[in-house]
Amino acid sequence: MTTALILLLLAVGAYLVAVIEAWTMNGRWQLAAPITAGIALLGRESIVPRKPDRVFFEVAPVLLLISALLAATVLPLTPGLIITDLATGVLFINAALVYVLVALLMAGWGPNGAYAMIGGWRFLGQLIAYAMLIVMPVTAVAMRAESLLTTQIVTSQADLWNILYQPLGFVLFFVAAMALAFLPPFDLTTATSELAGGVEAEYSGVRLAVFRLGRLVLVITLAATIVVFYLGGWQGPWLPPWAWSAIKILAVTALMLLAGPALPRVREADLLSLCWKLGIPLALLNIFVVGLQVLVWP
């Protein structure tokens, strides 16, 4: 029951992400557009390029969708609305999200095209760097909650949200989440003007629909993760918990999507050096500072 409800909510969430994304691009609210686009894709031919690695080509979009869905299973939307409250929830989210990388590598290799392949390898470099910025800020979050349970992380923020308790961690995690979801300006792996779509370039029809859906779900899942880890989850005054969750998740989604059209794409060299030379030292500092805070105000 809970599972069905959460799947439904994710579907609605994915739809809203698509609407918001279109809005950030052209400033219009096109409420029907994602649905017509989806139906149109289903009706269109789904081409298999010449000499593909068929297994990878077929599996990649599905794996992307599944890993995004799996990450969502441990995120609480209201106190009871969670598919499974794993004792290792925080670690589990990371584990599920790393498979986004595997999916994109498959999508890069499978269709047998140069653009796709370069896109796939680009994402390898990007994710290995930014996975660090996912894991390290999350460590600090878990330190404060003294638990890997996502519900406990939410309740640990009852007095003060983590965005205020560890703002540095929030910024790092937010950037890393955008890089993980290859949202612009971090969309080096699907860059239209460099790789003509990169890993997406060879997909069409149903497979493309699944790929895009997977990405939308990934965005909404990451937004929900940010809300759970840093914005106090369902907590908030006056409104019921579900409303707070929804408002916060949509706000974070909009924030993640707004940066894209307003900024030029990051250079690949900058992307990597930013992470390794600036991001990771800052993340270590964040862990250190949060450690001190936890000791000083237990």
Partner: peptide, 12 residues
């Protein structure tokens, strides 16, 4: 074309 459809990994 933007495709490269006829490259295969080996050749590539």
């Amino acid at each position: 074309d933007m495709d490269h459809g006829d490259m295969d990994h080996g050749d590539m």
